[in-house]
């Protein structure tokens, strides 16, 4: 990792990073590799699931109810003889969809609103931040629970509810990043050279907020996956028979004593995904932000 590489990224003359080089740096980071080592096998299994010799996620099998994990059923079966592994993989698909959609939506809204608040200041800033402060007064899961009670259950409403609870955090982050950049010397320099506001914004300010935003986005994805699982576990998120990691675990709760595997194994998968996303976020930070290197 050469210092010149990172100097180029953050110097005003080259506001757009040399994406390919940065990406290689990201891939060669140790934390990234740990994250990928966990995430990639899970992704491969999810993609290959239809071709593996597994029972279909919704298929019941009354001759194999609540069976211990075995070669045929690596995660065991539930009370209706459904294959827990194949349901888990289907649930992971939902989790990832929710996680990445939420990260993307809250990132998009956060960047736009946060930039407006931070860059234009005054009245607009006040208006946006007042709303943001009010929304931040709700603990996030509780805000999502409240919203789900209005928008209903299912994948799409859950994504909307979680993203809505997340947007204020991104607005706040982006605003503070923009405020921090506004007083930096290279912005002053550009200004003395009569750079227009649009130029400053899109050429100097926004590109320099990308790295920390990506770090926050991957954490937000992990968080959204946990929140979706919590909602579905409470019976307020994604409803059976559509499998989601949360509702599989909820299903198994009743049979905890007789069949511990129904609840515990899918939970371990959630944990693994969350850990991998946190490692990836560390990887992004260490490879894109030169100051974060230790």
């Amino acid at each position: 990792m050469s210092m010149t590489g990172s100097a180029v990224l953050f110097s005003p003359a080259h506001p757009f990073p040399r994406v390919r080089g940065k990406f290689m740096q990201f891939l060669s980071n140790q934390k990234t590799q740990i994250g990928l080592l966990i995430l990639v096998p899970i992704l491969v299994l999810v993609v290959l699931a239809p071709y593996l010799p597994l029972q279909k996620p919704l298929q019941t099998n009354l001759r194999a109810m609540m069976q211990w994990p075995s070669w045929t059923f690596p995660f065991g079966t539930d009370r209706m003889g459904r294959d827990v592994l194949s349901r888990t993989l289907e649930g992971v698909k939902v989790s990832l969809l929710v996680g990445f959609s939420v990260a993307f939506i809250s990132l998009a809204f956060g960047v736009v609103l946060g930039t407006i608040a931070g860059f234009f200041g005054r009245f607009v800033d006040r208006a946006i931040m007042t709303v943001v402060d009010i929304l931040l007064a709700f603990p996030s899961l509780l805000l999502a629970i409240g919203l789900v009670s209005i928008v209903g259950t299912g994948i799409f409403p859950v994504i909307v509810a979680i993203a809505f609870a997340d947007v204020p955090r991104f607005v706040r982050l982006q605003r503070s990043l923009v405020l921090g950049l506004r007083t930096r010397a290279f912005i002053d320099a550009a200004r003395t050279m009569r750079a227009s506001k649009t130029w400053l914004l899109f050429r100097h300010i926004v590109p320099n907020t990308i790295a920390p935003l990506l770090v926050a986005a991957s954490i937000a994805a992990a968080n959204a996956i946990l929140v979706e699982a919590s909602l579905s576990f409470l019976g307020l998120g994604i409803m059976p028979p559509e499998p989601s990691l949360g509702n599989i675990i909820r299903d198994g709760q009743t049979y905890l004593e007789q069949a511990w595997w129904i609840s515990t194994l899918p939970g371990a998968v959630i944990l693994a995904i969350a850990i991998s996303l946190h490692f990836l976020s560390d990887g992004i930070r260490e490879s894109l932000d030169p100051r974060a290197r230790t």
Binding site: A222, L226, A229, S230, F233, G246, I249, Q253, L256, E257, W260, S263, T264, G267, A268, I270, L271, A274, I275, H278
Partner: peptide, 22 residues
């Protein structure tokens, strides 16, 4: 600490229920 931090609380909860209570 990182692993414990990320464990979903409903999952930990079920473990504790299974182990300490049941």
């Amino acid at each position: 600490a990182m692993v414990l931090d990320l464990m979903p609380s409903f999952w930990t909860g079920l473990f504790f229920l299974l182990f300490f209570s049941l």
